[in-house]
């Protein structure tokens, strides 16, 4: 019962966040000086053509009407029509979304696989060389500029060593197992860029919460029972230290998506980020707005899932 209430509250909060994001963008786009109507209509049109064009896109209606029409359309999964390509924005973006999910998801998994052992070895030997290196590396890692990392990796592994492809997501004309291999090879560099981008925050955060956990009484009890240090760290302390890290995942998601936009631009990776880059060049505001709404919805959903996961892992949260 407590869990159902907790889940419902989190769901409502997610919906509120999404509504806020949609509303703010809608009014920003309509009220800011850059007039989207101008982007649709070209100056060579006659007044009449222009009026028809604006009516087609519903841009001649009063603002509140436009707003509620937009909300209604969104509920039906309609993100509008791309100004440039004259196809539904949702179609353009849904084709791209899986790539972005693969990229961000894999980078998150790899970050944890590399980050957890790093944080454990730093926390176990506080003040050691490893600990120092982790702390300095963490600070520098948090200061990295995504394109810099991407370009560096592209240069070293793509151009200089020639081990990995420098762009795209898959080779043409491959099928079956070969296709998966090709996808994997194209994924390595963009994924690694995002890993380097977020590794610092995760390692530093996990290190601190591990050090806290190792100072707790239950670890002392485990030690005095004669449990090996290895088990104390990996079984007792790490389990509890990982809990707050679940929250960090939620906090970092928006940042990760921003990193993905830049990374996809560098590696010509066909995700939402690349679509955003292309839409900027074409001033296709419908796609830009749709991309933000879709990414916000994805982040809200992922946040909801991490919240629920936290609620399952830690019974105390459900009470609050």
């Amino acid at each position: 019962m407590a869990f159902a209430r907790f889940a419902l509250l989190r769901l409502l909060r997610g919906l509120l966040t999404l509504w806020f994001a949609i509303t703010v963008t809608f009014f920003l786009v309509r009220l800011l000086p850059g007039d989207p109507a101008l982007a649709v209509a070209s100056p060579t049109m006659t007044e009449e053509q222009r009026a028809i064009m604006l009516a087609d896109f519903g841009l001649d209606q009063p603002l509140p009407v436009q707003y509620f029409t937009y909300l209604g359309q969104l509920l039906q999964g309609n993100l509008g029509i791309s100004f440039r390509q004259s196809v539904p924005v949702l179609d353009v973006l849904l084709e791209r979304l899986p790539w972005t999910l693969v990229l961000t998801g894999s980078s998150l998994i790899v970050t944890l696989i590399i980050g957890v052992p790093l944080a454990v070895s730093a926390a176990r030997r506080r003040g050691s060389h490893i600990d120092r290196a982790v702390q300095v590396g963490g600070v520098i890692g948090q200061s990295l500029f995504v394109p810099t990392v991407g370009i560096f990796l592209l240069y070293v592994f793509g151009l200089w060593l020639g081990w990995l492809p420098i762009g795209g997501a898959i080779d043409r004309g491959v099928s079956g197992l070969e296709a998966y291999g090709s996808m994997l090879r194209h994924l390595v560099l963009p994924c690694l860029s995002l890993v380097l981008l977020q590794l610092g925050s995760y390692v530093l955060f996990l290190r601190t919460s591990l050090i806290d956990a190792l100072g707790e009484e239950y670890t002392t009890v485990a030690r005095s029972k004669g449990v090996s240090e290895r088990t104390v760290v990996w079984k007792h302390a790490l389990r509890n230290a990982l809990l707050p890290t679940v929250t960090l995942v939620g906090l970092q998601l928006g940042f990760l998506v921003g990193g993905a936009v830049l990374t996809e631009t560098i590696f010509a990776y066909p995700g939402i980020g690349r679509a955003i880059y292309e839409a900027v060049g074409q001033l296709d505001f419908a796609v830009l707005q749709g991309a933000f709404v879709l990414l916000a919805a994805t982040v809200v959903l992922a946040n909801l899932l991490t919240d629920l996961l936290y609620g399952i892992l830690d019974p105390r949260v459900r009470q609050a």
Partner: peptide, 24 residues
């Protein structure tokens, strides 16, 4: 507090891009 939480959880870069592209 809610406004702060909401703003922090959203992907900000795509929103910045949208607005910078609109305003010029």
């Amino acid at each position: 507090g809610m406004l702060i939480d909401v703003m922090l959880s959203l992907p900000i870069l795509p929103l910045m891009i949208l607005i910078a592209a609109l305003v010029g």
